[in-house]
Simulated assay, not measured.
Amino acid sequence: MQSPSESPSLASRTWETVGHPLLLVPLGSTEQHGPHLPLDTDTLVATTVAERATRELRHHGVDAVVAPAIAYGSSGEHQGFPGTISIGREALTLLLLEFGRSACEWAGRLVFVNGHGGNVEALADAVRQLRDEGRDAAWLACSPDPRDAASSALPRDAHAGRAETSLIAHLRPQDLRADRIAPGATAKLSELLQRLRAEGVRAVSPNGVLGNPTGASPGEGQHLLDAICTAAIRKVRGGRVAENGSLID
């Protein structure tokens, strides 16, 4: 009943036109991103990457669709800041597992597009189980390929720094509080990790920023997004599934 001419949005299809598509599922978070970025930063990035990947795949004749985003993740390290809503690793693992079991009843393939690093352990647990059960499931991270020469000059920091600030400046500039941009904890993440895990982000960065967002720009955000999308599309089209369920080149 369905064809690639059907809507690229799962929510817009009917049950008769769903078919057996490649299903891309944005997975983000609702958590603090410093005093200058919106709480849905991770979800916005994941959704944008999934939508762009879908358009590219459909251009090549693949019936790919984007599911409504999963906007809550494992964000306990940010719980010290108002607005953060974390469902924790165990609940997220169960959610992704049951989501996958249901979706794989009709989807030809399932790929979670992850925008939040705190979700990785739950993703690995859930996707490994889905694959052990014989389901074609995988996940990928919203990050550029570090081997690409063009991406080496792009900003990289842990949280609400120059990289994410540039992405929001490009994607949704009306939600960027430019007058509140300020550096946070600028030490290497490896130096902060032990205390961060034990006490949360607020213990190492009172403003919630891990990095320095100063100097972020829409142009930089566009280049970074292009690199992320290029890597994601390449992984979906020709990547292999690693032991943790992630798609890699």
Score class of each variant (00 low, 15 high):
V120I: 09
L189Y: 14
G28I: 06
S7L: 09
Q2V: 15
L23N: 09
P35C: 07
F81W: 11
T48L: 01
D63G: 14
A149E: 15
D148S: 05
E98F: 01
R58Q: 14
S12H: 13
D40I: 05
V201S: 00
A122K: 00
T165I: 00
A149N: 09
A232E: 02
E121L: 06
R172L: 09
G118S: 01
H78F: 11
P183Y: 01
R156I: 07
T84F: 04
G200E: 07
P173M: 12
L24M: 02
L57R: 03
D175S: 10
D136H: 05
Q194T: 15
T84L: 03
D148F: 10
H33L: 02
T17W: 09
A227T: 14
G118Y: 06
R162L: 08
G88V: 03
P82V: 09
A160T: 05
L110V: 00
T47A: 02
S143Y: 15
E105V: 14
P35E: 13
L196D: 02
G211C: 00
A71Q: 07
L94Q: 14
D175F: 11
L10C: 03
A178L: 11
A149F: 09
A153V: 12
S246I: 01
L140T: 05
T54K: 12
A11Y: 01
G108A: 12
I87L: 15
E6K: 03
D136L: 10
S9I: 05
Q174T: 02
A198P: 11
S166Y: 03
G108K: 04
Q79K: 05
W106A: 09
K235I: 00
A160H: 01
A160L: 04
N119Q: 04
A64S: 15
S12I: 01
N119C: 05
A169L: 13
H20D: 15
P173F: 10
Y72V: 14
L176V: 15
G76C: 00
E90S: 00
T14E: 08
V201R: 05
T186V: 04
L95F: 14
A103H: 08
L140G: 00
E191F: 01
A178N: 06
A91T: 13
L225E: 00
A149V: 11
A216C: 02
L23T: 07
D132W: 11
A137Y: 02
A227R: 15
L176G: 04
L192I: 10
D145T: 07
A138Y: 10
G211A: 05
R135C: 13
T17I: 13
P82C: 08
D132G: 11
R55W: 12
V236W: 02
L154Q: 06
E98V: 02
T30N: 04
L27M: 11
A169Y: 05
T165W: 03
L247V: 07
T214S: 13
A232F: 05
D63R: 12
V236P: 02
N119F: 06
G118T: 08
G88Y: 00
V18R: 12
L192W: 02
R202Y: 02
R172K: 08
G61P: 06
A124K: 01
L189W: 13
C229F: 09
A232K: 04
G73T: 12
R234C: 06
T41Q: 04
G117V: 10
G80E: 10
I181S: 10
S74K: 13
F81R: 06
P173A: 15
